[in-house]
């Protein structure tokens, strides 16, 4: 039995923070926050040992509401701050929560290098294909042809596939879910937090206010229903042709590999440096 929403609320939400939160009714961010909290509960992690870092945008506000060590950084830079925290105190469980623009436009450089560097960090990327907070401008994951407030004639650029990008950049663990598949999201975040090395979970989410409405996909429920219909598992996707996969969302674990983790490797460097100094 997963813990009740009330139990999670009492345990993890900051009651001294002046609610309400900034998210629109029906926003997928709440589902992702719930998935993160259920994963943390299942892993029985101490609140004192969790650091949640975010960038800027709707996703950036999540740490404000949660009773961990929380860090709301600058736009795109969550992973850089998280890198410093983790290296300074490797005992902490460090999670970065980002949006699609945050993680792959302004912070794209940091994402690929964090993946290559392979620190023991978890990155959760909420991908709603739009800049919601600033009014619905196109992001690196806005589909070709989509209408946004900066592509009113139809979008002429191509979208990143975030999870595939993270695989190519070298992350140890990469997975994708949607906000419709909340139970899967719980499980993937749990796996990502357990995984030694850099772990990325992309969660496809709905911004019905800025994206769904303007692209005639509909309200929150209609968008979630669409995710249900578009989703195919990694296993099924492997049997499908690229043309068949065009409008699909591949969900599940895309990669899970064991690579040397730089947080651990650095321990070895310290020993080596100390030994070198003693010799001198």
């Amino acid at each position: 039995m997963p813990p009740s929403i009330q139990a999670l609320t009492h345990r993890y939400l900051r009651h001294n923070k002046r609610f309400p939160h900034v998210w629109c009714p029906g926003c997928g961010n709440g589902i992702v926050m719930g998935a993160l909290l259920r994963a943390i509960t299942r892993l029985e992690l101490e609140k004192d040992n969790i650091v949640l870092a975010s960038g800027i945008g709707c996703s950036g506000r999540m740490p404000t509401y949660l009773d961990f060590n929380t860090l709301h950084t600058t736009h795109g830079r969550a992973l850089t701050f998280a890198t410093g925290v983790k290296l300074a105190n490797p005992a902490l469980n460090v999670v970065a929560i980002m949006g699609d623009g945050d993680a792959t436009a302004i912070g794209g450089n940091h994402l690929i290098h964090a993946a290559r560097r392979n620190l023991n960090l978890t990155a959760i990327i909420i991908n709603n294909s739009i800049y919601g907070m600033t009014g619905g401008q196109y992001s690196p994951t806005t589909p070709f042809g989509a209408t946004t407030t900066t592509s009113m004639y139809g979008h002429i650029e191509h979208a990143f596939s975030i999870a595939e990008l993270a695989v190519t950049a070298g992350a140890s663990f990469v997975a994708r879910s949607t906000v419709y598949h909340a139970a899967l999201a719980d499980q993937l975040i749990e796996q990502a937090m357990m995984k030694p090395g850099f772990a990325v979970v992309e969660i496809i989410s709905n911004c019905h206010v800025q994206y769904g409405r303007r692209n005639k996909i509909g309200n929150a429920v209609q968008m979630l229903t669409a995710f249900k219909e578009q989703a195919v598992t990694v296993k099924k996707a492997a049997t499908m042709e690229p043309e068949e996969l065009q409008d699909k969302i591949t969900i599940g674990v895309l990669t899970d590999r064991n690579l040397p983790v730089s947080t651990d490797e650095y321990k070895r460097i310290r020993e080596q440096a100390r030994a070198g100094q003693e010799k001198r």
């Binding site: 860090l71 850089t80 701050f81 410093g84 925290v85 983790k86 300074a88 902490l92």
Partner: peptide, 15 residues
Amino acid sequence: IASIGAVIGASLAGV
């Protein structure tokens, strides 16, 4: 940009 981000993160972790 990343360098100073990491520096701030490390300082927040007490170093």
